[in-house]
Design a protein around this nucleic acid. Sequence first.
DNA 1: GGTATGGTGTACCGCCGGTACGGAAACTCT
DNA 2: AGAGTTTCCGTACCGGCGGTACACCATACC
Lengths: 209, 209
Amino acid sequence: MSRTAARGAETRARILGIAQDAILQKGFDATSIEEIVAAAEITKGGFFYHFPDKSALARALIERHIEIEDEIFDGLWARARELNDDPLHSALIGFRLLAEMLADMPNGHPGCIVATAAYQDRLFDAAVRDLNRRAVLGWRARFRAIFDEIAAVYPPREEIDLDALADMVSTVVEGGIVMGKALGEPHMIVGQILLFRQFVKQAFQPPLH
Amino acid sequence: MSRTAARGAETRARILGIAQDAILQKGFDATSIEEIVAAAEITKGGFFYHFPDKSALARALIERHIEIEDEIFDGLWARARELNDDPLHSALIGFRLLAEMLADMPNGHPGCIVATAAYQDRLFDAAVRDLNRRAVLGWRARFRAIFDEIAAVYPPREEIDLDALADMVSTVVEGGIVMGKALGEPHMIVGQILLFRQFVKQAFQPPLH
DNA sequence: GGTATGGTGTACCGCCGGTACGGAAACTCT
DNA sequence: AGAGTTTCCGTACCGGCGGTACACCATACC
């Protein structure tokens, strides 16, 4: 990569970082391009060279966000597997680790870009909506695999829709973020995840006696 | 009420109706005042007579939304009580009625104004955020009372945080709406509510044998 | 050393939220 | 019944934002 190309890539990365911080804090629409370019110390011309429009910025952010989130989940569940090889117990550990991670965030979860886009989807183009869809389907597949493993070892006490169960992880996370924002209690999502964990435990674990 | 006052109230109601439809379909920020006044066949001067700013419109919409939603829940749980006097069974019927109601909506739940405001709260003032908070706390109180009744008759098989459980109704609904929008499957919320219902059943109902 | 290419700045457009103010109709009081 | 007030809405305008058009400069390559 040449020196000019390297400078351009650096500028692009700086825009993405500043935009992500601002958007997670204030929402996509409340974040103006002008304030982004001011913080990045460039001008609108520079911005629109890297991104043809604001939707392209959203696309890039969502792609990056999905990658980072996947890495986080990978890391969490890898650690959980290390701690316990049983699929149910390691999943329960994974949910607890997830809850702890969220609890350790001083200001709560910064918000999910996917949800931000979902609630303002008319602002975005079809490509953003499709990215969003694929992200959610990715989460479904991830947790569906986990619950499949569990169900193979621990037959659920009642028939249960494993796709719906996998989706519920995302539902509780997204809903918890919304509720936390509405309540002004960003950590309420922790309790919701722990409660979901308890449901999973009760759904698969045989009665103790 | 005089004739002019009646005309003003009619205009105001027309603005609210048009704004609600547009906002639930496109999001708050994507709905311009200009398109609202065009649809209502008035001008901006007329709009800003009824609402000092866009936040005031949001306040009025949220207040109306909360009232309507409360009435819906009241109606649903009243019917559920008619059908079964037992607190657990009537609650389970209530959740099923809720799921059926959502399933009957051809385009899915139109979206929750509370969540819309939560994800764009920088656009609104403190009064809107406070309204939002009180709405969520109202839902918590409503379902907490229901679960208290259940717990008095059916001691949960495991200790359970009843406030978190009450909040989870809202979490699943809000999360389900977000997920439905992201997936383009507006009815996925139905499965999520039925799954939550199953969890409630398993948490309180003693094992069959 | 000229020239394509990558990267940035400047000037401008149209739309939107919001303000200021004017004016017509309806209501009120005498 | 007529004058003044209130209710309700229109017109004209401002500043900020997303976006476009295009000029400009530095580097890379021949």
